[in-house]
Simulated assay, not measured.
Amino acid sequence: MYLAATVLRNNVFLLLFLFIFFSCDNKHKEYAENVFPYSRFPQEKELRGEVIELDTALFRYPFRIRIEGDKVIVIDLHGTDHYGHLFQYPSFQYLSSFGRRGDSPMEMLSMENFRFYNHAVWTLDANKSELTRLDYSSSGDSLLREEAVTLDEDILRPLDFVVYDDTTFVIPDYSGESRFLKVNCQGKLIEKIGAIPTANEKALHEARPALAQAWRSFLDYNPHNGVLAAVTQLGEVVEVYNLKDSTHVVRIGEHNEPEFKVSDGYGIPTGIMGFSDVQVTDSAIYAVFHGTSFKEIARQSGRLSDGGKYIYVFSLKGEPLCKYVLDHYIYGIWVDEATKTIMATDVNSDQPILKFSFG
């Protein structure tokens, strides 16, 4: 009896060892050598938000917030009349609105994001496949449309962009053929960058457009250090491209890469809501994380607050540094490391602007 039990136990240990060995070996083979998992952060801190009282009711879905100098802009993703709103900073006194909603040549069908660059503002209208530059009026209290760049027809519907330099933009490639596209100031494709870092070989070969949809990512680029960061809307993947030295690091969290099923050529999400915004500062990468499963979203049927309760901080090489746990659900962020301030948008509140102090 004792001998049989010993042999059985040893066989179980041997099988367990072989399972772990082959699992680890297969996992290693699935991803490239620049892909690293992460599961925890060296630091975890709680942050309490201060509500900024606005003197005007403008927003239906305040999606993005960015600040430059004494100006702050907030995008309303579902704006009734305008998509963009300009405020004084730090008072948040309302100044004016821009990006009128409509289908005329001077109006916008959507506004996915905007970027400050050289004292001007660039916006993206995905429905028109158009980038627009706006300059400040002489009084500085409004933004005026100056030029529009129509993207090539073979560039599939772009959902985000960054300004790389005076003549170049970077946008995601939703064909699935590469990860990003460099586009010149005439809207022409000039270079393809990278590939989707997936272990899903079947989708990579048979359903690239659906795979690219599932890997929709939010971007930010810092010209001071040359770091382009991308965070996935589904799953938990952070990509860090250093465009100065051409290095590329991928970090995958415990929720793994985006999960989806293909239906009529489209990628239908089946996993979790991942990230919703990212900012590359001079010293770190800050990203808003949700982590809510679509099963839970469906089960709660609209009762869940929309947004993420976490801000993840990574080094410029993608190493996890700190996890901030918030007392509000947020969508967009703007980080000022000099004053240790994070401004954020809350789509669940009539007073949607929050201020967090950190550090």
Rank of each mutant, 00 (worst) to 15 (best):
E112R: 02
N113A: 09
N113T: 03
R115S: 07
F116L: 03
Y117A: 05
Y117E: 05
N118E: 13
A120W: 03
L124Q: 04
N127E: 13
N127G: 12
K128S: 09
R133I: 00
L134N: 02
D135A: 08
S137E: 15
S137D: 15
S137T: 11
D141L: 05
S142L: 10
S142F: 09
L143A: 01
L144M: 12
T150K: 08
D152P: 07
E153Q: 13
D154H: 09
I155K: 08
P158F: 00
D160F: 00
V162C: 03
V162T: 00
V163F: 05
Y164C: 02
D165E: 10
T167N: 11
T167S: 10
T167I: 08
T168D: 04
F169K: 03
V170S: 01
S175D: 06
S175A: 09
R179Y: 06
V183K: 05
N184R: 09
N184E: 04
N184Y: 04
C185A: 14
Q186F: 10
Q186Y: 09
G187V: 00
L189W: 11
E191M: 08
K192M: 09
I196W: 07
I196M: 10
P197K: 05
T198S: 12
A199S: 10
N200S: 14
A203N: 13
L204Q: 12
L204Y: 12
H205G: 11
